[in-house]
Amino acid sequence: MAARFVVEADGGSRGNPGPAGYGAVVRDGDTGQIIAEAAEFIGHATNNVAEYKGLIAGLKAARELDPDASVDVRMDSKLVVEQMSGRWKIKHPDMQPLAAEARTILPRSRVTYTWIPRERNKDADRLANEAMDAGKAGRQWEPKQPSKPAVTPVQVAEPPLETAAPKAGWAGEADLGTPTTFVLLRHGETALTPEKRFSGSGGSDPELSEKGRWQAERAAEALAARGSIQAIVASPMRRTRETAETVAARLGLEVRYEDGLREVDFGAWEGLTFAEVQERYPDDLAAWLGSAKAKPTGSTESFTTLTHRAGVARDKILARNPGRTVLVVSHVSPIKTLVRLALGAPPDSLYRMELSAASLCAVQYYADGNASVRLLNDTSHLR
């Protein structure tokens, strides 16, 4: 299932026209949690131009998180809301190209516009003012949290478990109730797996191989013996669907699909080995290995982007399954990311984890926001 986001955007100009800036936030449509922020000082402009630029930045941030998402835009600018809804004509030449750009970011059928009073748009307004303050000081806006990676002009907020410190309940001072347990199952092998070829969400979407189907059956046997799985959530890609459905048939459960669990889009690297990528795209590969914000050649997605959509998917599953044990069937990168977030480990720790085909990991999430990794890369059921 594609994500549902709320984008709140605003812009301001001190003098109208005058020094101007915009701000935008992206919220998870189910929880209301802010998952991305954008702000920028844009120089000399009008209020309306700044508001449109805030809208564009918010829509782009939502698209980066999930290009298939539906978005509810909420702004306190009656002008922008009515014009983008098609009820008012856009006559001003400065706004016509901005409105046209906004319409190209996501399909019109997946974007709605709602007017809200200014007091309900405080976060976007705050960011716009921060951007203008930064411009007045001769610099660009930067996030206030230094631990969060800077992205210009969009700053994506890390999921809450990224930097959370252990709380009092962790020491047993409070009854935290039954934790929610994720049993993380990587899909079985495809034809590309033993050759160690990049296989993400932008490639051929391969099916399980004969060995991969055997691995899925062994995982189903092991999970049936475990006897605690109460729900199954999976990436919608073919190899994860086939793996999840094999287990679901054995356990008598239905599979719920979550798009945030899909693998990273590896762009031009899809289907290539690491050596082939190193030979053809050495600079891009070096950048990708050196920074979570770098993207594979031709891809629109980095590990930073993956972190946020995987965090949103995690929070959705937790909200729907408090105190339950959920089988999460996914891919190498999303599973490693969930483990990394649970550990509070840095992004480059992804390169220090082994995750075999059809392997099992387990993470428990507690009511105080803490998490505990209970199992990593278990393949005993395959021996």
Rank of each mutant, 00 (worst) to 15 (best):
H381P: 04
D72E: 12
V71E: 00
E37W: 03
R324M: 11
L375P: 00
A165L: 14
K136V: 12
L55W: 04
H92K: 15
P159K: 14
E119Y: 13
W288Q: 02
G177T: 11
G169F: 10
A36N: 01
F303L: 13
W115Q: 11
D175C: 14
Y351H: 15
M237Q: 13
L176T: 00
A99M: 07
S13M: 11
G200I: 04
E158Q: 06
L272A: 06
T104E: 07
L65V: 03
K293Y: 10
E217Y: 08
V255Y: 02
F41A: 10
F198R: 05
E210V: 14
A225S: 06
A357F: 04
T152S: 09
G298L: 11
M1W: 02
N16Y: 11
N16V: 14
E40S: 11
A224R: 11
A137P: 02
M237H: 09
V25I: 14
Y257S: 00
L285W: 12
D76C: 13
W88P: 09
G86L: 05
R238P: 00
Q83T: 11
L289S: 05
R238H: 03
L55T: 04
N121A: 13
P107L: 08
L355N: 09
A124F: 07
T240H: 02
T190K: 08
G58W: 02
A191S: 01
V25H: 02
